[in-house]
Write a protein that binds this DNA or RNA. Sequence first.
RNA 1: GCACCCGUAGCUCAGAUGGAUAGAGCGUCGGCCUCCGAAGCCGAAGGCCACAGGUUCGAAUCCUGUCGGGUGCACCA
Length: 587
Amino acid sequence: MTALTRELSAIAGRAFAEEGLSPEFGLVKASDRPDLCQFQCNGALAAAKKGGGNPRALALKVVERLKGYSIFAKLEIAGPGFINIDLADTTIAARAAALVKDATLGAPTSGAGRTMVIDYGGPNVAKPMHVGHLRSAIIGDSLKRLFRANGWTVVGDIHLGDWGLQMGQLISEVALRGTAQIYFDEAFTGPYPAESPVTMEDLEELYPAASTACKADPERLELARKATAELQLGRPGYLALWKHFFTVSEIGLKREYASLGVEFDLWNGEASVDPLIAPMIEDFKARGLAEMSEGALVVNVAEPSDKKEMPPLILLKSNGSVNYETTDVATIIERVRDQNPDLILYVVDQRQHLHFEQVFRAAKKAGLSGKAVLEHAGFGTMNGPDGKPFKTRAGGVMKLFDLIAMANEEAKKRLTEAGIGADYPAEEQADIAQKVGIAALKFADLANYRLTDYMFDLERFTKFEGKTGPYLQYAAVRIRSILRRAAEEGLIGSEPVVRSPEERALVLQILALPDAMEAAEEKRAPNILCEYVFTLAQMFSRFYAEHHVMSEHDEELRLARLGLCGLTLDVLVKVLDLLGIEVPERM
RNA sequence: GCACCCGUAGCUCAGAUGGAUAGAGCGUCGGCCUCCGAAGCCGAAGGCCACAGGUUCGAAUCCUGUCGGGUGCACCA
């Protein structure tokens, strides 16, 4: 099913074409002034500006042509040449009825036949996840769902940080403590113990200790660097230890992402491309794409048109080890080989932008990216009240686990306060608290535009009124409640009708879903979906406050409203799903 | 120093290709539960869109400059 605005744009575009102008001027969009009209076309103004002539006169000619189409209930020219458009209620009701039968609810098909790899999450092995990891997980997960809904074949990859200096820091820390000697005994030939010498709790203590020590002491840092290099060269004891770190961390990470409702198709890490690195470096050397500089092997990625300084990409450090620039280039080779994607999207902190610029340039220079467009979809920092990256009052970073627990706790409290959940089974109460808490968290984050830094406010992340995730769930739950009653009485909704301003506004918003999904894809911006679904819930709430469904005596109207409720619920649930938010049966 | 991003209501944030009267939530004030869930609905107050120029019929949006904030600039990720 074609999106309504697209259909209207096509009609208006034809009218412009018949006037000898580009059909692009026929773009029709939802009105900025709903008090004046439902849709607007501003193309006459743009066309007049480009080609000269009077915009009002042109608008008049276009409108004359549009009058031949019966779907327009109102065609007006306003101000300097806006074309204001209304559709008949029967027309929009018929569109809604058609939507009921469309399982995709009119979703765009922009991704049909196209494949993308989306790289998000990016946690580090052996480091506990903190609130800073929230954005990549939530935004990436939402974009994955959105692109998939728009027809793309999507492969989501967590891309763990598991091959860099932090591994060397850990290995050297374990060595210094002498708690697992066997892994450092060069005479030992294996096999190494199957049981990990460290637990997750150990890692949570080991890493910060190692990191702090390395920062304070250059010699300690040198030990870590050396261990990193040896690990990457394949020293068996280090590899065995690394494997343990990885396995132990993976369990914790999986649990944490599961509680967020975030999933990945691939659990690859930097280390997984290790076998590709040596041949890749040889290839760069053989083709003269890499050169020695200050002891390191680098790729010059500067271009004459650069306004800023563009440092070279370091392929091989002077001590022979690699950092994440190298693994990121190798990962492109891996992805092109395995998925041959049309797009590789990196959902990573905006502060990494220069890094990706370098990686992309190196990959293109060497012709490694196949048909893929490489794109960094960065996001802003989550700041504390001081405008600096968020820290707890104690000065540490807040663990993601604690944040989720707090949100759930608030949700549970609210449920008991409202009294309504008192008779629910304990298991359901816990389930509701989880869904509501996560919804508050995700929506509070996703509602901000991706690129702007925003202030982390615990209160806002655990708030359930106003423009929040739970408000949206609440709207959906109220519809479910109506539908339950209807089912008890054996009633089934019929085709929606539009007989009131509230119904009209609601149906128009429902019909705008494809526009929101398309815009959100184009901008890689889930906040557009947030904006859309919040308005939808508002339109429903107004309708709900103004009209009764079950107690409506006109039976035909009652069933039509039931149908409208059903459709609204479907759209609500769908968009919330795109945001990674689940709706409980009741709350 | 060079480069990029940002500055919108008391607070936190939206604002899609340059469009009409710049929006929302929170907070404040005032209404609405003897009919489907008040985590809701309705209304009011609240703005020199940092500042100064420019382009345009039209600028929060584009250009230039100033001030203020953030970020990045070779072996950390």
